[in-house]
């Protein structure tokens, strides 16, 4: 896999950008690269890059996130140090962009410098099991809205089609036709397919990027466990 100095993950909200950005940053760090991840999500107040702060710190990854992320202040402000990611060309940068066009406006601030350096990948993250990106037509519409807001065009597609905890090998196999059509319609290459690591192991012969996903306290107990207790 070839790595550009800057990797930007954008897409429809809820498409999985944050999970992929965090996992990709960890992957780069494991290869010994100096990595900075920037949370440019000014839209979503819940489930953010900062939720993985400890893991990122342990991997030696620098995290830039809005000062008020995960706090109770609903202020869409970006930290000034975000610009260092673009300016300091000595390391790799991963940018987690907010959902839809409204989230992508934040990227416009950096678009000129990113394009001038011309060592970036602008990835469109898509999950075809999300209601507003379940047809190629609707997906292309959202893509164009994001590009217009961000001031940068997408260079590739990341297929993050999943059904949360119900994701199986078939969930991903079934998405391949959709992603293929999206790729043909837009002329963009499919950079990678993603899957939670246990599912990824079952997908031989496909370029799958395996991801670790966080367990949350409100995830329901495993039904097998509770059935045994009854």
């Amino acid at each position: 896999m070839e790595h550009k100095r800057l990797t930007l993950f954008a897409g429809h909200y809820g498409s999985g950008k944050t999970n992929i950005a965090v996992n990709y940053a960890l992957y780069l760090a494991r290869m010994g690269k100096k990595v900075t991840i920037a949370d440019l999500d000014i839209v979503n107040p819940y489930f953010r890059t900062k939720d993985s702060e400890r893991e990122l710190n342990e991997a030696g990854i620098r995290l830039i996130s809005p000062q008020y992320a995960n706090s109770n202040v609903d202020l869409p402000a970006l930290p000034a140090e975000s610009y260092s990611l673009v300016q300091d060309k000595s390391g790799y940068g991963v940018m987690d962009i907010g959902g839809d066009d409204r989230g992508a406006y934040a990227l416009g601030r950096y678009a000129g410098a990113i394009k001038a350096e011309n060592n970036y990948r602008m990835a469109f993250v898509v999950n075809c099991h999300r209601p507003l990106t379940s047809t190629v037509e609707d997906t292309v519409e959202i893509m164009k809205e994001i590009e217009a807001a961000a001031g940068i065009s997408f260079t590739c597609i990341v297929n993050n089609s999943n059904l949360g905890p119900e994701t199986t090998r078939d969930t991903i196999i079934e998405s391949l036709d959709f992603v293929d059509r999206l790729s043909k319609t837009t002329g963009l290459e499919v950079w990678m397919h993603t899957a939670e690591e246990s599912v990824a192991r079952e997908l031989d012969g496909l370029q799958v990027f395996p991801m670790k996903l966080q367990k949350k306290i409100f995830d329901l107990p495993d039904t097998n466990v509770t059935a045994g207790l009854k």
């Binding site: 909200y13 809820g14 999300r130 209601p131 999943n162 059904l163 119900e166």
Partner: peptide, 14 residues
């Protein structure tokens, strides 16, 4: 079909 939704979206679609 199974689809992946946010709680808020599910309210709107329903």
């Amino acid at each position: 079909e199974r689809i992946l939704m946010k709680g808020n979206e599910a309210i709107a679609e329903a």
